[in-house]
Write a protein that binds this DNA or RNA. Structure first.
Lengths: 245, 245
DNA sequence: AGCGAGTTTATGTATAGACATATCACCCGT
DNA sequence: ACGGGTGATATGTCTATACATAAACTCGCT
């Protein structure tokens, strides 16, 4: 349209991305604070001299990323600051250690297959009787203990797990590559090492440990429950968050 | 129309959502495993009797959610299993306690304003001299200590913080509502309580504690660094992940 | 065989127009 | 004042079409 800024920034290449980034920038710098009403689609389309669908695509993506909220008839608004959230990536331990450039070691401590007792069912969150596999193992990096794992697998939900050989491959890696999941829940807490943990991790009794408990489901059906214990002062979980790439 | 399955599932309401969910279901159940090529857009549009733009909208959203990968000329493919990742929501502590239905208490322990010393600059990650605010405070729930907070704020980046009154409102809440941020990094670890922490949290020396260290930036500029210490056996961080709603 | 140019193809972006739908704002009657 | 009906309006979905672009494939030349 006529104005000098028509050239705009070619930093994006495509129009809708330019629009999206322009709006994102205004939100992130605080120029448009939370609650602020963003111009209507027809205003933006006039401003950039494009069609409504193009504006709509930019705004839809921002809405999908939870940066803005759209209300029919009312308009589009900058969302109140979300909870400070972060994507916590908890990779397969073998891959994690490999990524650190250290030698991965794995040791199966015990394995059992049994009909689920009350404690197993409670832990997995299943009501009906089922068979489970119970596995304990240890991961190490450069021959230094890295984490202890205590896992239950619902063999009715994951029958293939009965055939898998966990003497060589850790169950976490096997499951991640063979079993699709739809929901996962992590709980992170801190404990002090008791005698068994101290011995397993080669640390002092009373040393702090980080505990991650993870439950995984597929379509509401429990698959596995795992408890990982890390030496707390040596291990850190790091999560980084960027406001939509 | 014509085919029996045209009725499909009205569970979505709109066509593109139906398409999106149909594909999502096939991926999540493993019917279309990682690496599998999804039908071409023209095939899907024939299958549902709709226009290409509608199919494209469904696929674009799945691509934005990282469930599929699209390659020109080659087609659309189911992505390999991502890292087991979870969105860890770390809310403002006041809101967190309020959500638990408990009474929030806040106590300012100490506050200082000074030119940043070497340790401050190291911790914030700034190189140039600047002024900082250093705040220590305690959060409690139902009069039971909940967390200790030790925070640095870069006053050059957040000049308004100099005027804020942290005697009544916790700095985390104030920052969350007044300062837009673009990047955050969390590190989670476990420690045992030393004497100062034990006294502050009213727990025993040697008890396990969960530590969250958070750094926040705006456009690469450090804003604040905070260290939160929680009683480790009472507090759990919970993160739940669903495969795109 | 090896290599480069041209062709094909699936996705990527954009358009103008249409109808649907949720809601807010206003007006009107009680 | 209050409640209900009604119209205006911004977003939500969808279509049919067009051209751009990147990458894989084909083919022919050396």
């Amino acid at each position: 349209m006529s104005l000098a800024d028509d050239s705009a920034k070619p930093g994006a290449g495509t129009l809708y991305k330019t629009i999206r980034q322009d709006i994102e920038r205004r939100i992130l710098t605080g120029e448009w604070p939370p609650g602020h009403r963003i111009p209507f689609e027809h205003e933006i389309m006039a401003r950039y001299g494009c069609s409504r669908m193009t504006v709509n695509k930019a705004l839809s993506e921002l809405a999908q990323a939870d940066l803005i909220e759209r209300r029919r008839r009312a308009g589009t608004f900058v969302r109140r600051p979300q909870f400070l959230s972060a994507v916590l990536k908890i990779p397969d331990i073998r891959a994690e250690i490999g990524a650190l450039g250290r030698a991965y070691g794995y040791e199966l401590i015990s394995t059992a297959r049994r009909a689920a007792n009350a404690a197993d069912r409670e832990r997995l969150g299943v009501k009906k009787p089922c068979k489970v596999a119970a596995i304990r193992c240890r991961h190490s990096a450069d021959n230094v203990p890295f984490a202890l794992e205590d896992r239950l697998i619902d063999l009715d939900a994951v029958p293939d797990a009965a055939k898998a050989n966990f003497k060589i491959d850790p169950p976490g890696s096997w499951l991640l590559h063979h079993v699709p999941w739809t929901e996962a829940e992590h709980a992170i807490s801190a404990i002090v090492a008791d005698e068994a943990i101290a011995e397993g991790l080669d640390i002092a009794v009373g040393a702090p440990c980080l505990v991650i408990e993870r439950h995984t489901w597929r379509q509401g059906q429990p698959l596995t429950a795992v408890r990982l214990v890390y030496p707390g002062e040596q291990h850190r979980l790091v999560a980084r968050f960027r406001g939509s790439e």
